[in-house]
Amino acid sequence: MALGLFAELAAVIIPVLILACIGYYLQKTNQAFDTKALTPLIINFGTPALVVYALLNAEIRLSDLGEMAAISLLMQALFGVIGYVMFKSLGWNIRTYLPVTMLPNNGNLGLPLCLFAFGEEGMALGVAYFAILPLSQFTIGQAIAAGHANLTKLFKNPMIWGLALSLALIQLDISLPQWVMNSLELTGSFTIPLMLVTLGISLAKLHVRSLPRAALIGFIRVFGGIAAGFFFVWLFDLQGVARGVVLIQAAMPSAVFNYLFANLYDNQPEEVAGVIVVSTVICFITLPFLLPWVF
């Protein structure tokens, strides 16, 4: 029994670690890997294809997808309140620390874990949970970091249009031709590996400046997320794959995208980088203990 559980855990965690470590190694050894060229490929083509294929291929009800999205939104709202109250009382810069507390890495890290843990159904539910993140990043997250929102970038995000197309096709019960589905599957298949490799590269570039502060926020992000995940699982009476997906996505560390906005708007990017690195390390240490509760 113990060996069986260990095999299940290894099957989920080790592939993620290997690909992230490959990216980390490439960056540390200064080998050519142009993330600036690959990021548009992932965002503009890979992720939209992955979203459409995962949602249509899994044949999941709109109500289930909506439930995942609602929990994701509630989770972000909860951490927004917790973060605002805490940083306000401590006198810390809200524009710096609130986004990195609110917005987790449900894409680069959460989606592969959902896929390896639960297959296509887990991937589809994970996508529904993740889909709220870009909406929040380009509205609330950017507004906090910059002091104003930029909805133009939100509506230019191909993933949003891919999500809208998927929901419309599901609602209208329209099936795409097989050649389209095959093309979407092939295009989306490179997204997960590249997400993980670029995650490793990003972590190798970031450095921890204030360890105690980064550790505190990282601890709140991961362990607070786990606690909130169990609460929402109980509140929505989730079972099976849906329960597991929420627990995995709730436990994710701070999103790397927070660093890009902090750097863009000069919001202490080195502090944000520290939170991302430390929370990711905490997440990887925690996963082996969390996953037995997920299956």
Results as ranks from 00 to 15, higher is better:
Y129F: 07
Q137R: 15
L154M: 06
K153P: 07
P134I: 02
P134F: 02
K153A: 15
I140K: 08
I132G: 10
F155N: 03
K156I: 14
M159Y: 04
K153W: 11
T152M: 10
Y129D: 09
Q142E: 14
I132H: 12
I144M: 08
K156P: 04
Q137D: 15
A128H: 02
N150T: 11
P134L: 02
P134Q: 10
E121M: 04
E120F: 04
I144W: 07
A117M: 00
Q142N: 14
E121V: 12
A145S: 15
K153V: 11
F116G: 01
Q137P: 15
S136F: 09
F118R: 05
A146S: 07
A143L: 08
T152D: 15
G122V: 09
N157L: 08
I144F: 15
L151Y: 13
L135V: 09
W161F: 12
A145M: 05
G122H: 02
F116W: 01
A146T: 06
A149W: 07
P158V: 08
A117P: 03
P134D: 13
F118Q: 05
G122Q: 03
A146K: 03
A143H: 13
A124L: 06
M159C: 09
A143T: 09
L151W: 11
I160Q: 01
K156M: 11
G122E: 00
E121H: 07
M123D: 02
L151H: 13
E120R: 06
K156A: 13
A143F: 08
T139Y: 09
A128L: 07
M123L: 05
H148S: 11
L135F: 10
Q142A: 11
A146W: 00
N157C: 11
A128R: 05
M159L: 11
A146P: 07
N150Y: 15
G126N: 04
E121D: 10
I144R: 12
L154C: 05
H148V: 13
A128E: 03
G119L: 02
A131F: 06
A117N: 03
G126S: 06
F118G: 00
Y129A: 10
I132Y: 09
N157P: 06
G119K: 05
E120H: 14
A117R: 02
I140C: 11
A131Y: 05
I144H: 11
A145N: 07
G141K: 06
F118I: 12
G147I: 07
T152V: 14
L151K: 14
F116S: 00
L133T: 11
T139I: 04
L133M: 13
E120C: 04
I132W: 09
L125K: 06
L151I: 07
N157V: 12
G126I: 01
G141S: 10
A124K: 00
V127Q: 03
Q142W: 07
F118H: 03
G126Y: 01
H148Q: 15
S136N: 12
I140G: 13
P134Y: 01
L154T: 06
I132T: 14
W161N: 08
E120L: 07
A149M: 13
